[in-house]
Amino acid sequence: MKLSLRLRRLLTTIVTLLIWSQLAWDYFHGGVPTHYLLHDDRFPGIPNWWGAAILPFFTWFLLYRIHKRIDGRGMLVASENLRNIVLRFLSGVLVAVAIAVCFMNGIEVTDYIMGSLFVLAFFFPLYKSEYLLGWVLGAAFTFGAILPMGFGSLLALIFFVFYQLGKAVGGFIRPKTT
């Protein structure tokens, strides 16, 4: 199955409606929250309004990247089917929700979760767009959309480097067979 233009439009519309619904709820129930870098109010605040303006474009961009990767090739790689992409997306959502729940409840395991992601990045392509989209959408409710977009994009870059290092070291260690 392909990631058609119609499906990309539908998913982007759903994300747009969800983020604007959350903003409407926040507005009528105490005001739209502002988030701070490193959770320190000495830094400039980023209100959730910015996320509502930018998240639909970010979603569209990542869905377009996924579309180009899976639909833009002559032959489809088995690991690049839509089912695997959905599973990657859901794993990104689950990790982000786990971190958000731990953060909100003061559970001190977020460092271990993040550390395990850095280790897993050597073996799995955690830099792919579906992981990033899952991360951003899973964390947006708690942290707004802008901070997860920025932090997730930085993580994707680091994870790309780690994955390439893991492949290089793995290729160096494994003997070539003829």
Rank of each mutant, 00 (worst) to 15 (best):
L132Q: 11
L132V: 14
L132T: 14
L133Q: 05
L133W: 10
G134R: 02
G134T: 05
G134E: 03
G134P: 03
W135A: 09
W135N: 09
W135C: 08
W135Q: 05
V136A: 04
L137N: 00
L137C: 04
L137I: 13
L137K: 01
L137H: 02
G138C: 05
A139F: 13
A140F: 11
A140T: 13
F141A: 11
F141C: 02
T142H: 13
F143E: 01
F143A: 06
G144V: 07
G144H: 06
A145R: 07
I146E: 01
I146H: 02
L147S: 00
L147P: 03
P148D: 07
M149F: 07
M149T: 03
M149V: 06
G150D: 02
F151H: 08
G152Q: 08
L154K: 00
L155P: 01
L155S: 13
A156H: 04
L157V: 15
L157M: 13
L157Y: 13
L157Q: 02
L157R: 00
I158D: 02
I158P: 01
I158C: 10
F159G: 06
F159T: 04
F159L: 05
F160S: 09
F160E: 08
F160C: 07
F160D: 07
V161S: 10
V161T: 13
V161W: 12
F162V: 00
F162Q: 14
F162T: 04
Y163W: 12
Q164I: 09
L165C: 13
L165W: 14
K167W: 03
K167M: 14
K167G: 08
A168D: 05
G170H: 02
G170C: 01
G171F: 05
G171K: 05
F172L: 13
F172A: 12
I173P: 00
K176V: 12
K176T: 10
K176F: 13
K176I: 11
K176Y: 11
T177C: 05
